[in-house]
Design a protein around this nucleic acid. Structure first.
Lengths: 231, 231
DNA sequence: CCAAAAGTGTTATATATACACCCATGG
DNA sequence: CCATGGGTGTATATATAACACTTTTGG
């Protein structure tokens, strides 16, 4: 990249950060992954995982890098949420932050990296005090997740590869913070022709055992692009 | 604002721009307001109105300022669209841009300012070649407008204060790029209990004349917050 | 044999869609 | 008196919401 040409030269330059809201689902509750902030100011306070955008990387790439720094994961569903640009949002300096949210399988992470950052999962209903505007970021991301899930089948990103219908329903109930009728839910989700029923049963949560499903990758990708009407 | 503290000091700083997609509706077509770019590179090419974010202003404030520079308007419906952060997006330097879209009444602008920027309205179906990634910005903003309009009554921002049902329908048809049945449309919109029918008729477009409506500000604001299911 | 979760259909209601004619007016 | 756009209702199809009992099996 050449240096800024004359026409741009006199404009202010800004610190640009990325913050990641990382969602997980433990079968009962929607959770967000938080770390203990390692940087001044506010060292040791709970915070979203974040970092600065470098000169030679795209903002999206920065988000991917920062997610990977904490989780060790790659190829994760990630979406830009919003640019937070208030002058005073960071207590130490003017920093503009672009927030992203990511959906991961809650057991899928690198434990060493997580320990290194003192990361912990928090139920979305029990988020502790956070630095700066991170609470607002989580709030907005939750609303966005809800909207997104209504028209795109991204909920599966939060589930294990094989899952039961009740796990799926519990996930949607957690996202919408409501309850659904089991029969109506089953009917609707199966009608999408998106799931493939396995011969295998999950037997941990009941004596009878519940059939496991996987999603049909082709249908899934198609509906993810086209959109669907879920609820 | 104090200077960046030690912990932030070594991070790269970036040029931060704002670009505005300004929508208008002429009674038939959805249009976007474009200017002839005044800056190198690509001087004289069609472009969205944009500008740089200053050190002491929020990103939202920058967007408002830049919209005002072109139109002279204040208190305009404006929404952040997306942060465009590819390294090579601007041909001259690494510039991260935050795109906003605005809805204005198409006759409501300061002509002197518009002339100064060589601004012109373009039908969304006939957007000329644009600088950098501005075409992509317009595409995304159109999709977002469509989604937004489905759940929030923001369409009115594009109409004159008094409008006929046919103007309203034409607007929604333009946004969705489809046709609606007149009777069903009327039924639905009136059922929202959002419009107030005036005793006054608009007589330009027909001999009989069509009744004018205004929206009920209280209902409007309530539905704008709560959301609604429009179509 | 019993506790606990799995699985499964029908009906009622609400919403969405399709469709065509008369009205009022200015020229 | 007629051409033009304005205004209005009903019937059908589809989608959503409400609702309860039987099955399986490990202990």
């Amino acid at each position: 990249m050449p240096p800024a040409i004359t026409a741009y030269k006199n404009h202010d330059r800004h610190l640009l950060a990325v913050d990641c809201i990382i969602f997980g689902f433990d079968g009962k509750e929607l959770k967000a992954l938080l770390i203990k902030r390692a940087l001044e100011p506010a060292v040791g306070q709970w915070s979203l995982m974040g970092g600065f955008v470098q000169q030679n990387e795209s903002v999206d790439a920065a988000a991917t890098r920062i997610l990977n720094q904490l989780t060790g994961l790659q190829d994760i569903y990630m979406e830009q949420l919003h640019c937070f640009g208030n002058v005073e949002r960071d207590a130490a300096a003017r920093v503009v932050s672009i927030a992203y949210f990511a959906l991961i399988k809650i057991d899928d992470y690198n434990e060493a990296l997580m320990n290194e950052h003192h990361a912990k999962w928090f139920s979305l209903n029990k988020i502790p005090a956070l630095v700066f505007d991170h609470r607002q970021m989580i709030k907005l991301s939750r609303e966005r997740l809800q909207e997104k899930v209504t028209s795109h089948p991204i909920g599966f990103e939060l589930l294990p590869y094989k899952f039961t219908l009740q796990q799926l329903q519990a996930l949607y109930e957690a996202v919408y913070n409501t309850r659904f009728d089991k029969r109506n839910f089953t009917k609707k989700i199966l009608a999408l022709d998106l799931l493939h029923k396995l011969d295998e049963k999950e037997k941990e949560s009941s004596r009878k055992g519940a059939f496991l499903f996987v999603f049909d990758k082709k249908k899934y990708e198609q509906l993810n692009k086209e959109g669907l009407k879920f609820l």
